[in-house]
Design a protein around this nucleic acid. Structure first.
Lengths: 195, 195
DNA sequence: CAGAACGTTCAAAGGTTTTTGAAACCTCAG
DNA sequence: CTGAGGTTTCAAAAACCTTTGAACGTTCTG
């Protein structure tokens, strides 16, 4: 084998490493890996890059680059810029990560929590109705109602937390903790205030 | 068509709806959908259920049920219980959602953030080294170093936030906001304190 | 205005993850 | 000890998502 590295890792490319690391991170957060990779390449580049550059560095086909850039632009994570002498499109990264994160949370997580809250509300209503009209055993229905009520409480607190987060207010997870705890000791308090 | 519903949705099964809703939620959070579905069925059931019951309600094959239950038990989301007269295994849901969430955050998100922080640290070091030994243009290297430094800052703050969250302490997102903001106005402050 | 370079779209190929059915494995009653 | 019922494992199949190359638009240049 060729001369072994003495002290510093050879073949450890910092840029490459960061690109892949952020890629993994984004993948974990529910995005395609390439979104994170592409954004990172731009974030680490002092100059705007053309899609060919990006494709080269990330080993992506032109179509993949185009698709990924499109998605990133929808999230506002990448901006298109013109470079005077060049006919091609150049791109730069949005550098305010806070802005990116809050936008995603607003558009994606918050919408999801809201949908879920709505669904739980409907379920709660339908269940009460079903109990009144006599379908469904009373005991099981009451149990379910309580459990669903607990989920509703949780989702409303979650919604509040997310809302506070995106507007930069302090959060107190103990609120969730109280709601998300075991429910054995639950007293028969009635319905709660809606979402 | 048969008599249209007058006021209440027929064919809206509350249990079914909640099961699917939580399933979606879990899927979004990086788990397989069935994990959320199965947990919910147990959560909404007053009695422990056997795997056959579960398979029936969720339309899952026995092997799928077994696999899913195994995974849920690893997360502590489901417990196995014995029922006197019955030879089969019965299962119940962990009802403390707070406990579930914090465990997942601890084991999964926190580990991820730590790994990323470590990687960024390595990259930072390698980059400084590369710059000293003269590989890599000085200008570009300095730029990257600054940007990576910013990412490191962010990840260390994120780690702190997650840590605070799982131990139920109040959080202040403004800390992230400050670090995650645009970096244009950045002054040439030196390196920061490590992770 | 024609040609060339670049960007985008989309159906199909490719890869990966999820689901399944069959077989192995346990446990307990008889 | 044997057999029935229940559970787990695992390789193969199915479903799913991603990536690609070719065709189509668009925009600028000569």
């Amino acid at each position: 084998m060729p001369a072994p590295p003495i002290h510093v890792d050879a073949d450890f490319d910092p840029e490459q490493a960061v690109v892949e690391g952020v890629g993994r991170l984004m993948e974990f957060w529910g995005f395609r890996r390439h979104l994170g990779r592409l954004w990172t390449v731009l974030y680490l580049s002092p100059e705007p890059l053309a899609s060919t550059d990006i494709g080269d560095r990330l080993q992506l086909s032109p179509s993949a680059v185009s698709l990924t850039i499109g998605e990133l632009m929808q999230w506002g994570a990448v901006k298109k810029t013109k470079v005077p002498g060049d006919r091609r499109d150049f791109y730069t990264a949005e550098t305010s990560i806070w802005r990116l994160v809050t936008r995603v949370v607003r558009q994606r997580e918050l919408a999801l929590v809201r949908d879920t809250a709505e669904l739980l509300e409907r379920a709660s209503g339908a269940l009460a109705e079903a109990r009144r009209t006599g379908r469904l055993g009373a005991a099981e229905a009451r149990f379910m109602e309580r459990r669903i009520g607990r989920l509703r409480l949780l989702s409303s607190v979650g919604e509040k937390l997310l809302g506070a987060f995106v507007s930069g207010m302090p959060l107190d997870p103990n609120e969730v903790r109280a709601v998300g705890g075991r429910e054995d000791a639950e007293d028969a308090r009635g319905a709660h205030d809606g979402a």
